[in-house]
């Protein structure tokens, strides 16, 4: 090992390196924030709806934040893995989570996850909101929601869903309860395989956020929307709301995508959070962003600049729903 240590050049480099090591974080000052790329945790897989939406927004956001974004994907245990790893990341406003409030709050509520919304993690800014929808593949024999419900009174009708802890799943269970129809929910673990099951006819129908069938174009036929009114009649063949079609009185079921930070960031770096919120809102009204959303095939009507209060209110409402349907969703 003598040669190793005596190598003067190496020693010098090592010394310099050690000298730099602790000083780098100290250099970071708030005027420079963000002084590095923003790390974005996506608690689902690459190539999914969250990935699509996150890329559309960060492309334009970079203009306002003057920083690019780097993505990490943590699918697993319905998003639990992503949430828990996010909580372990640096809490200084350089790490954000791009969440899908609906399914993820339900997951946090139903699974044994040591994270409390509000106390540990805060949704600071919504980016989009979309209602849940029931739809079938283009070759399906079902033309209307009424037909589907009638058949489901005769036999259990199979419905592909992304996962059981999901607003769309709750919607189907609630619809079944209200009409006496039996829906057998089949969780495919992700929007893409869920959609594929409906298109290829493995299941009778599918329940997913509305953007999914819309981006599928002519391959999908929307039968009903869990909302008070159809926000995008042109792009859904004028599909009725579930309540109109089934004569029920179900609450609107939506899910919002939103950015979240660890709760401690709000306390320790409030000005950073403000900067994040402000730049996100600027992005959401930027014509480039609107064009990017439209280009991805997602209706621009879904863009929703809801603030922290609105996002947290949605989370609370979703948590309440989850508690109500707990038994059906956990198989207990």
């Amino acid at each position: 090992m003598k040669n190793f240590v005596r190598n003067a050049g190496f020693t010098a480099i090592a010394a310099m390196a050690l000298a730099t090591y602790p000083s780098v974080p100290a250099l970071a000052q708030d005027a420079d924030y963000p002084d590095s790329n923003i790390s974005i945790t996506i608690p689902t897989g690459e190539g999914g709806g969250a990935d699509r939406d996150a890329r559309a927004i960060t492309k334009v956001w970079a203009k306002y934040l003057e920083r690019n974004s780097e993505f990490s994907y943590y699918p697993g245990a319905a998003g639990q893995v992503g949430y828990e790893f996010f909580m372990k990341s640096k809490a200084d406003g350089t790490h954000l989570m791009f969440s899908n409030i609906g399914p993820e709050v339900i997951m946090l509520e139903l699974q044994d996850v040591p994270i409390t919304i509000g106390e540990d993690l805060v949704y600071i800014q919504k980016t989009s909101t979309e209602p849940m929808a029931i739809w079938v593949g283009a070759n399906s024999k079902f033309e209307t929601l009424q037909q589907l419900i009638e058949e489901a009174k005769e036999r259990p009708v199979t419905i592909s869903v992304s996962r059981l802890p999901h607003p769309a799943s709750i919607g189907m269970l609630a619809l079944g309860e209200a009409t006496g129809a039996e829906f057998n929910l089949i969780p495919y673990g992700g929007g893409n395989p869920t959609a594929m099951a409906a298109i290829t006819g493995e299941v009778d129908a599918s329940a997913l956020p509305l953007a999914n069938p819309i981006t599928l174009g002519p391959e999908a036929r929307v039968l009903g929307i869990f909302a008070d009114e159809n926000p995008v009649p042109d792009q859904t063949g004028n599909a009725p709301t579930v309540n109109e079609a089934a004569g029920t009185d179900l609450p609107a079921l939506t899910s919002s995508r939103a950015f979240a930070v660890q709760a401690s960031v709000l306390e320790e770096y409030p000005e950073r959070v403000e900067l994040l919120k402000k730049t996100i809102r600027e992005t959401l009204v930027d014509p480039d962003y609107v064009a990017a959303v439209a280009a991805a095939g997602v209706p621009v009507e879904f863009i929703d600049p809801g603030d922290q209060e609105a996002a947290m209110a949605e989370a609370a409402a979703t948590a309440e729903l989850a508690t109500k349907y707990r038994d059906l969703l956990t198989g207990e």
């Binding site: 699509r52 559309a56 174009g217 002519p218 990017a292 280009a295 991805a296 095939g297």
Partner: peptide, 9 residues
């Protein structure tokens, strides 16, 4: 999608 190209049929 990023480029706004439709896919599928």
């Amino acid at each position: 999608q990023f480029h706004g190209v439709p896919f599928g049929p």
